[in-house]
Amino acid sequence: MSETEATLRLENVTKRFGDFTAVEDLSFNVRAGRVFGFLGPNGAGKTTTIRMIVGITGPDEGTIELFGQRMSSEMQNRLGYLPEERGLYKKMKIVDQLRYFAALKGMASADADKKIDFWLERMNLAEWKNKKTTDLSKGMQQKVQFISTVLHDPDLLILDEPFSGLDPINVEFMIEVLSEFKTQDKTVIFSTHLMETAERLCNDILLINKARKVVSGSLREVKASFGKNLVALRAVGGEAVLRDASLATKVTTHSDELEIQLAEGVSAQMLLAKLLENGAVISKFEQIEPSLNDIFIDQIGGFKES
């Protein structure tokens, strides 16, 4: 596979800590220029997987390829990683910390200084440049941490729970920055438990639970495969059609509209045709897709029962 097709490839990756298997036989690809949502409940193995991707630890079995190559020190320069548990040096000036992180990513100092000014300006932190971490609010610190992640213009951005602790304005702002990355043909991987955000941002998703892959694919495919043939309807007339058990197995009333579970083998088009035939006046007819949240609860909940 060429570099443009897959930024990241994991094949049969397994990681154990003693008797505990944190990640088991995990394989997936992340395509270039896409936003990849890495979802799963706490303790599913997300952070362990991310740590292997960024080269902090190595897998016990299987291979990880970045840009078509094995992980190396130079490769780390093309990565931007924002860990879930993040920190800054407490008593150091913001600018000095950013310079250090940039140097560790192999940036020349003149180049780094330019970028630091640019990003501090953009994040409205310019006047805090020479302040120490302890002078900054928590939200400002998070913005500084984000700057350290993107400073060296990485080709692959890996963010572990990037929105936790941010106020809604800053969340919007971050989403805007991430969208920009996407248009620059860079790849973004982020893990989150906020399904709504994931739904808004992601092109592709991977859901893992208990060290194993549960669902993966593009957001549309996943949603389609979990479609439960539900239709939302707001109409006058056509009650007879809905009573026909060969068409609708279940009808639920939600305030001013009805939720209809289609019988097996019945498409939404067939129901719509029947309703029109029967002279129903339709103000709303919508095929309901399951939300990512529904899929998440459905899949993880199902696991819990087993």
């Binding site: 020190s73 990683y81 993040r86 560790l104």
Partner: peptide, 17 residues
């Protein structure tokens, strides 16, 4: 201890050996 306590280590380890 500071780098461990503040979790900077994780950022550092993703940048250098």
């Amino acid at each position: 201890v500071e780098e461990k306590e503040t979790r900077i280590a994780e950022i550092l380890f993703s940048s250098a050996r």
